[in-house]
Nucleic acid binder design. Sequence first.
DNA 1: AAACACCACAACCGCGACTGC
DNA 2: GGCAGTCGCGGTTGTGGTGTT
Length: 366
Amino acid sequence: MGKGRAPCCDKTQVKRGPWSPEEDLKLTAFIQKNGHENWRSLPKQSGLLRCGKSCRLRWINYLRPDVKRGNFTIQEEEAIIRLHKEFGNKWSKIASCLSGRTDNEIKNVWNTHLKKRLSFKNSESSENISKHESSITSSSSSSSSSLSSNEAPNIAAKTIPSNELNEQATLETMNDKIEQDSEKQISNEVISITEDQKELSTSLSFVESNNLNSSNIVVFTPEQQLFSPLTYLELYDVDNNNTLQEIDKPNHLNEIPWDLDDDLWKMIDNFVSLQSNEVQLEGVPSNQIQDPIQESVQDVETMKWSHEFDNMFGLVGETNESNNDGFLPKNYAAELRVDPQTFDLDVMERSESELDLSYIQLWLMT
DNA sequence: AAACACCACAACCGCGACTGC
DNA sequence: GGCAGTCGCGGTTGTGGTGTT
């Protein structure tokens, strides 16, 4: 008996299953700080009880900043179908042609939607062919003409002059035309919407293609598009003036796991000092900055921290670009608020058992 | 309301490819 | 060239959510 393949890690020593927000934070913070040169040693270095493979997968498929979330557009689906025709199940190759989409995501979409849809279309068309064939057979039983199964229905219609058959063929041709036209129209609508988005703002990361007929649009904020371990979504309703009205306000409370590492607590502490000192936040319109030259190095550092913190928790600051177009509601952004009077880094760094708390809560004010 | 079926997607697993020694 | 360690890919599985009976 051979030894067989050595397992990549000791399965009894590593955690498996879904990733917790805390683990996501740890992994993201570590990679942002140190990169990912060696996946195998990364879990040990970052303090994660995960296999290196699992970390890599989580980062690539979910946490990576440039990973695009949300439903696939019609264009993307069409591209996948086209590329799949060309490359087959080479998901990574297909993914490399679609920016922001992972091979895993594409594979899932293919297996759950596109494959079924295509086989349905195929069975529909073959059903149509067999319908024609049977009608041909029945109507041509007295005649000597026969058709191979490969012949297209419209050819059959020409071959067998039958009023009924011609009508059916014409109807189906028309239906196909209508279907194609409507698909084209929808596709064009999506193109125009996505192009408009590009022109107006990067804030609207996608418009769910299936929702084109409804007025509900899911809006991703720019930072969510770039990075969001704790995804923060808001649903908006488009009213008659084409402006967005919030329809489903999310719970504006983020629970932050207690045993964050020191860096993260310090990050929070830094954010608190930032707020108590009323330092200019990144994202605030530049015309409101009185004299940027006089900003101290400390302030710049604090801004950097606050931005990192926003990224870390999927929060966003209001940006000029996102509101210039008048498309997004003014207060779409969430802002982190921590009470500087009560927040104490030393207290927060104490052990969980000592304080008998498993979570602290940070309120997000809009 | 409960049980069941189905679906979507995140995560896992095994294997081949790649790289450095 | 052989070997060991690591990475990346593609197939498969597990699980939570949703719809149906």
